[in-house]
């Protein structure tokens, strides 16, 4: 199988991602794996691909188009991710305290699912914990840092921050360091970016997507689609909670290890 790989040069460059998808079809590739930057703008391009009979595997988010022949999904299990983060916060706060949730992004349905699962877990399992601040996700880590700065220097006492995205995790960590609260305010983040602070305790835990497994499954699904083999419409890959205690475990290494990449 020949694979053409490309990506927008910015994380927020949705028009370029759509252009890449359309260009790939024009070149006659037999199928497409795409991890949308946003949910809604990608719907029409994907529907057009399906109308042309091009198999598509969408990674990371549900576009709202039902899975079926020609379209399948590979997603991180966001329900489980939200539960993992909620239970971690509940545990380290011993069931009592104030929590800020940052990085809320309605643009990606997977993140909405992640947030709702987190809040539902806190309400259901830790009634002594209150979510006192909610903030939307911003364009990048610096804005997220300023946003977290405002939260930390505001009047409300904060015991833990749940950062729903990679950028908000980084921004919250920077804010904790900048305000000297990295030891007093717990940070539970999402998506593996800042591994080193896990070792130092600057970040309590990160819910990591098993991106290696997701990528492998996506390519396998596409190959099966192209050969007319029925595949499950939606495959959910369980995430992993990374903490200082398990960072050197084999399970975490399997996710973080880059030695699989030998080039072409």
């Amino acid at each position: 199988m020949e694979i053409y790989w490309n990506a927008p040069m910015r994380d927020d460059d949705m028009p370029s991602q759509i252009a890449l998808v359309e260009r790939s079809v024009a070149r006659g590739y037999g199928g497409i794996v795409v991890a949308p930057i946003e949910t809604l703008p990608m719907r029409t391009p994907i529907r057009r691909l399906m109308a042309r009979g091009v198999p598509v595997v969408v990674v990371g988010t549900d576009l709202g188009i039902p899975a079926g022949p020609g379209l399948s999904y590979v997603m991180s299990d966001e329900q489980l991710a939200g539960q993992m983060a909620g239970r971690r916060i509940g545990t380290i706060l011993h069931g009592q305290g104030n929590v800020a949730i940052v990085g809320i992004r309605p643009q990606l349905t997977s993140l909405v699912e992640r947030e709702r699962s987190l809040e539902a877990t806190l309400v259901r399992e830790f009634p002594g914990i209150r979510v006192v601040v909610r903030r939307f996700g911003l364009a990048g880590a610096p804005q997220e840092q300023l946003s977290a700065n405002e939260i930390l220097s505001g009047g409300e006492r904060i015991d833990a921050i749940a950062a729903l995205t990679l950028g908000s995790t980084r921004g919250a960590y920077y804010a904790l360091v900048a305000t000297g609260k990295e030891k007093t305010v717990k940070l539970v983040g999402f998506d593996q970016d800042l591994i080193p602070p896990l070792r130092t305790g600057g970040i309590d835990a990160v819910v990591a997507q098993n991106t290696y497994a997701m990528g492998r499954i996506a390519i396998e699904k596409l190959d099966q689609e192209r050969h007319g083999i029925a595949t499950p419409g939606v495959t959910r890959v369980p995430p992993v909670l990374m903490t200082q205690e398990n960072i050197d475990s084999a399970e975490i290494h399997a996710i973080l290890d880059l030695s699989w990449w030998k080039g072409q």
């Binding site: 591994i195 050197d248 290494h253 973080l256 290890d257 880059l258 030695s259 030998k262």
Partner: peptide, 8 residues
């Protein structure tokens, strides 16, 4: 390549 068993 990064050796297995250690953080990359």
């Amino acid at each position: 390549a990064y050796p297995l068993g250690s953080i990359p």
